[in-house]
Amino acid sequence: MSDTADLRLIEKICWYYYCDGMTQQNIAKLLGLSRLKVIKLLEEGRQKGIVSFYITRLDNNKLDLEKKLIEKYALENAYVVPEPENSHNITESLARAACSYVNLRLTNDSVINIGYGKTLSLAFNYLASESQCNWTAVSLTGGVNNYLPNARSDIFKAKMYLYPAPLLMKSKEIRDTLVEHPDLTWIKRMASTSSMTLFSAGGLDEHATVIEQGLFDRSDFIYLKRLGAVGDILGHFINKNGEIVDADIDSRLISTSLDTLKSMSQTIMVAGGSEKLQIITAALTKGLCKVLITTEKTAQNLL
Rank of each mutant, 00 (worst) to 15 (best):
1 M>K: 10
3 D>I: 15
3 D>T: 14
7 L>H: 05
11 E>N: 11
16 Y>K: 15
21 G>A: 10
24 Q>P: 01
25 Q>H: 11
30 L>M: 13
31 L>G: 12
34 S>I: 07
35 R>T: 15
36 L>I: 12
38 V>H: 12
39 I>F: 12
39 I>Y: 12
40 K>Y: 12
45 G>F: 03
48 K>V: 03
50 I>L: 12
53 F>D: 02
54 Y>C: 00
54 Y>T: 04
55 I>F: 15
56 T>W: 05
57 R>G: 09
57 R>H: 10
62 K>C: 07
62 K>T: 10
63 L>H: 11
64 D>L: 09
69 L>E: 03
71 E>P: 02
72 K>A: 15
75 L>Q: 09
78 A>H: 10
79 Y>E: 04
80 V>S: 07
80 V>W: 01
81 V>I: 15
83 E>Y: 13
88 H>K: 14
92 E>H: 13
100 S>K: 04
104 L>W: 01
104 L>T: 04
105 R>P: 05
109 D>F: 08
112 I>F: 04
116 Y>H: 08
118 K>S: 14
121 S>H: 13
121 S>A: 13
124 F>D: 14
125 N>D: 14
128 A>M: 13
132 Q>D: 12
135 W>H: 10
136 T>G: 00
138 V>D: 10
138 V>W: 07
140 L>Q: 11
141 T>C: 13
142 G>P: 12
144 V>T: 08
146 N>I: 00
159 K>V: 01
160 M>V: 11
165 A>N: 02
166 P>C: 09
167 L>F: 08
167 L>K: 06
169 M>R: 08
171 S>V: 09
174 I>A: 07
176 D>Y: 06
183 D>H: 09
185 T>P: 00
185 T>N: 00
187 I>D: 03
188 K>G: 08
194 S>A: 15
195 S>K: 11
198 L>V: 04
204 L>I: 15
209 T>C: 12
214 G>C: 03
214 G>L: 05
215 L>I: 14
215 L>C: 05
215 L>N: 06
217 D>Y: 10
223 Y>M: 09
224 L>K: 07
226 R>Y: 03
229 A>V: 05
229 A>T: 05
231 G>C: 11
232 D>N: 13
233 I>D: 03
236 H>Q: 05
236 H>M: 02
238 I>S: 09
238 I>D: 06
241 N>H: 07
244 I>N: 14
247 A>V: 07
248 D>K: 06
251 S>L: 00
252 R>P: 00
255 S>Q: 04
256 T>A: 00
257 S>H: 07
263 S>L: 00
264 M>S: 06
265 S>D: 10
265 S>P: 08
265 S>N: 15
268 I>N: 04
273 G>S: 13
275 E>P: 09
279 I>H: 01
288 L>N: 06
290 K>E: 08
294 T>P: 06
295 T>V: 09
297 K>L: 11
301 N>I: 01
